[in-house]
């Protein structure tokens, strides 16, 4: 496991399995592998192993962290149907999203990322987005206005 992976694993643990916040290396590794496995089984088919996407599937690689600059963006990542309507329970979906954010964001992620918690996911996924494309465009416009970044 690389350093980044270890850091991610620690984050995954502290967000999803609060009881073992200071998890052992073995637990860390297990949590990391679980999140990666869940990503592979539930998301990778459409999003590609590295989050590159293709066709109508947007590129998360190097971008996805941008959404975390606003609360609305943070909710968006949960409310897209791929997340919200997935077969994963709240805990595992939280872990997958944390894994995605940390693995794929590159430098699009600000340093103060608060991992998703299961309870937060449980709340947000109640309202899956229906008109995703429009919502996404609007959201990115707002974010780029706010930050001066051009998306």
């Amino acid at each position: 496991m690389t350093k980044v992976q270890a850091a991610i694993a620690a984050l995954l643990l502290c967000s999803c399995l609060p009881a073992s916040a200071s998890g052992t290396a073995a637990e860390n590794s297990r949590a990391y592998r679980q999140a990666h496995f869940d990503y592979q089984m539930n998301c990778q088919g459409c999003h590609a192993p590295d989050g590159a996407g293709a066709g109508s599937v947007p590129r998360m690689k190097g971008h996805v962290g941008v959404f975390l600059q606003s609360q609305q963006g943070r909710e968006y990542l949960v409310r897209v149907p791929g997340s919200a309507t997935s077969a994963l329970d709240d805990t595992r979906l939280a872990a997958v999203l944390n894994w995605i954010v940390l693995e794929f964001s590159g430098d699009s992620l600000a340093s103060d990322f608060q991992p998703y918690s299961a309870a937060e996911i449980g709340r947000m996924r109640q309202q899956p987005l229906n008109e995703v494309d429009d919502y996404r465009v609007e959201l990115l416009r707002t974010l780029s206005d706010a930050s001066g970044r051009n998306q």
């Binding site: 496995f37 592979q40 089984m41 990778q44 088919g45 459409c46 590609a48 590159a52 293709a54 066709g55 599937v57």
Partner: peptide, 18 residues
Amino acid sequence: PVTWIGTCLNPADGRNYV
């Protein structure tokens, strides 16, 4: 690049693979 994913058991080593 877009596809679907499953698991299968490799009887030779007893592991399930993605």
